[in-house]
Each structure stands twice: as structure tokens, then as C-alpha cells.
């Protein structure tokens, strides 16, 4: 297991259902409240007492953010190989195999198109439970492809990030994903299409330092850990003590790094509002242009 997955620190902790009897109850890691799993899930996995946002899978985000039954997955079969024949405490191939088995996914990101209040959106949702949502060649490739699809079909792009950063086991190949995805986001931006980036707990390292912070609008879930070097890395490398609330969403908002913090329950309508606001006038413009039949005047373009 990677250290940062088991580390018992604010918000970064993974809770094991087996600690509680029957799996019917779950303890809120933030306030200690014992919650009935079924009602917790109905409430979008937000603690009703302290509003702690539990980490949820990419499938759950699909349910929460998009219109039912509208998701069309892309590139679902691509999965990682092990070009470097990498081994730390375990062989990388074994890690991939067990991650695929436990999550039922082939990679740490789910991509495709889905409708949000009737509008088609290009979507990528990361899955933290797949090797800590780390970005290797497959994650990078899938996000670059979905951004490419957005350009081709003039769709807004929404990416929900949940990642510890670049995947160590793919070394330089992982590092280059940051550049590859950025190129795809630049193309999207040059096409004048909106990219709405959603940061969830945690969004750090090479993911934060590439597409996650390239959004036209950047929205974070409350109390998510967001930063470049994680708290442990900072402590161990420069020996600095970290102030309370350091690198949480609220800290980032105060420091001007994100546009807003949004509760999970309002996330769908918030994304919908921005997608609509950013696409509407552009589409009007295109309509008026095609009416003019060949006459390409800039006069109606703001």
C-alpha cells in the first residue's frame, strides 16, 4: 500500500467498513458520528452532522452529476502495461491486477459523454480507489482523448479529479502525461470551449500541477486536500510545521487559487449553470453565422 493511502491524517484516511459490525453503519472520520450507510448514500455520502464529504467512486459521481442513463463510456478497455518492469515492494503488474480486481475498473479514470440537464458534456471522473487515482499513461491518454472529443464535437469538458499525483511506477512516462494532457487542454481552450475542473479530496501532485488547475472555472468540494507537495512530503523534506487548515479547499479559496467551494448537493446545478453560461452565446453566434450563408462577418461576434 502507498503510505499516503493509509496515512491517518485529516480527510486522507480511508475508512474500513469492516471496523463496524454488519457493514450497515459507517463512522464519520471527521466528527465520529455513526451513520446508517443507506441514508448516508442517499445523502450523496455527505455527513449530515458535519458535512464531511466522504470519498465516493466515479460511478457515484456519474449518478450525482449527470442525467440518468445518458452516460456513454469511451476507451473503457485500455489498461496499463508495465513498460519499465517496475517493482517496489510489489510488482507493478500485480498492483494493477489487484486494483482492476477490487475496483472492477480498468484504470483510474472513467471517461465518456453524458447529459447534464439535457446538455451533452465530455466527462472524465477519476477514481481514487484505483491506485490512489494516480496518473500513468492510461489516465493521461484517456483524459487527452476525451478533451479531443470535446474539441471535435464542440462540447464543454468537466473533469472530476481525485488523485495523489503522477504514478511513480511509470516514472518519466507518467511525468510526460502532465505535458500531454496540458496540450489537449490547450487545444480545447484555443477552440474556445469551456473546461470546468472539479477538485475533490485529494487533488495533489502532478494532477494538481496539470489539468486540475487548468480549468476556466475551478470548483472544489469542501475540506478537500489540494496542493502540490503533500503535507508529509513538505514536513519530511523541509521540516516545516504546517498551519491548521493548510492545503484544504478553504485555504485555497482564501489564497485566490480556486473560484469557489461547492457542496456535492449543489454541484450538478452549479456545473450546469456554468456550462450553459459559457456555451449559450457561442452557439447563438454559430447559428447566426450559418444563417448568413457564406458571409463571414465578425460583427455579431462579441
Amino acid at each position: 500500500m502507498m503510505n499516503w493511502m493509509t496515512r491517518a491524517r485529516r480527510g486522507i484516511r480511508t475508512w474500513h467498513k469492516k471496523d463496524l459490525p454488519g457493514g450497515l453503519w459507517e463512522k464519520c472520520p471527521s466528527c465520529g458520528e455513526i451513520l446508517y450507510v443507506e441514508s448516508l448514500e442517499k445523502g450523496m455520502s455527505v455527513c449530515p452532522k458535519c458535512f464531511n464529504h466522504f470519498r465516493i467512486t466515479s460511478d457515484k459521481y456519474l449518478q450525482i452529476l449527470f442525467d440518468e442513463g445518458t452516460f456513454k463510456e469511451m476507451d473503457s478497455a485500455i489498461h496499463s502495461s508495465d513498460p519499465l518492469n517496475f517493482m517496489d515492494r510489489k510488482k507493478y503488474t500485480k498492483r494493477i491486477k489487484s486494483a482492476r480486481k477490487t475496483t472492477g475498473c480498468n484504470s483510474a479514470v472513467l471517461t465518456g459523454t453524458a447529459e447534464l440537464n439535457g446538455r451533452i458534456i465530455a466527462v472524465a471522473i477519476m477514481n481514487f480507489s484505483f491506485l490512489g487515482g494516480s496518473m500513468g499513461s492510461v489516465v493521461g491518454e484517456k483524459i487527452a482523448r476525451i478533451a479531443g472529443k470535446a474539441v471535435k464535437e464542440s462540447l464543454p469538458l468537466v473533469v472530476v479529479s481525485a488523485s495523489g499525483g503522477a504514478r511513480m511506477q511509470e516514472s518519466i512516462l507518467s511525468l510526460m502525461q502532465m505535458a500531454k494532457v496540458s496540450a489537449a487542454i490547450a487545444a480545447l481552450s484555443n477552440a474556445g470551449l469551456p473546461f470546468i475542473s472539479i477538485l475533490t479530496n485529494p487533488t495533489t501532485g502532478g494532477v494538481a500541477a496539470s489539468f486540475a488547475f487548468q480549468g476556466d472555472i475551478i470548483i472544489a468540494e469542501p475540506k478537500a486536500l489540494i496542493g502540490f507537495a503533500g503535507p508529509r512530503v513538505i514536513k519530511e523534506t523541509v521540516g516545516e510545521e504546517l498551519p491548521e487548515g493548510f492545503q484544504c479547499s478553504e485555504f485555497l479559496l482564501e489564497h485566490g487559487m480556486i473560484d469557489m467551494i461547492c457542496n456535492r448537493k449543489e454541484l450538478k446545478n452549479t456545473i450546469g449553470f456554468f456550462a450553459e453560461s459559457f456555451m449559450r452565446n457561442k452557439e447563438l453566434r454559430y447559428k447566426e453565422e450559418s444563417l448568413d450563408n457564406g458571409k463571414k462577418t465578425l460583427s455579431i461576434i462579441w
Binding site: I217, L253, E254, H255, G256, M257, I258, D259, M260, T270, F273, F274, S277
Partner: peptide, 19 residues
């Protein structure tokens, strides 16, 4: 819908902006 921050240093409440 208010948007915050200069993406560089801070969010200045003396200026409010949004869509």
C-alpha cells in the same frame, strides 16, 4: 454565481465578480 481569486495570491473582497 460569484467567482473568486486571482489564481496568484489571494481573493480580494473589495472587488466582487461572477456570472
Amino acid at each position: 454565481s460569484e467567482l473568486h481569486g486571482d489564481r496568484l495570491y489571494g481573493d480580494d473582497p473589495a472587488i466582487v465578480g461572477g456570472i
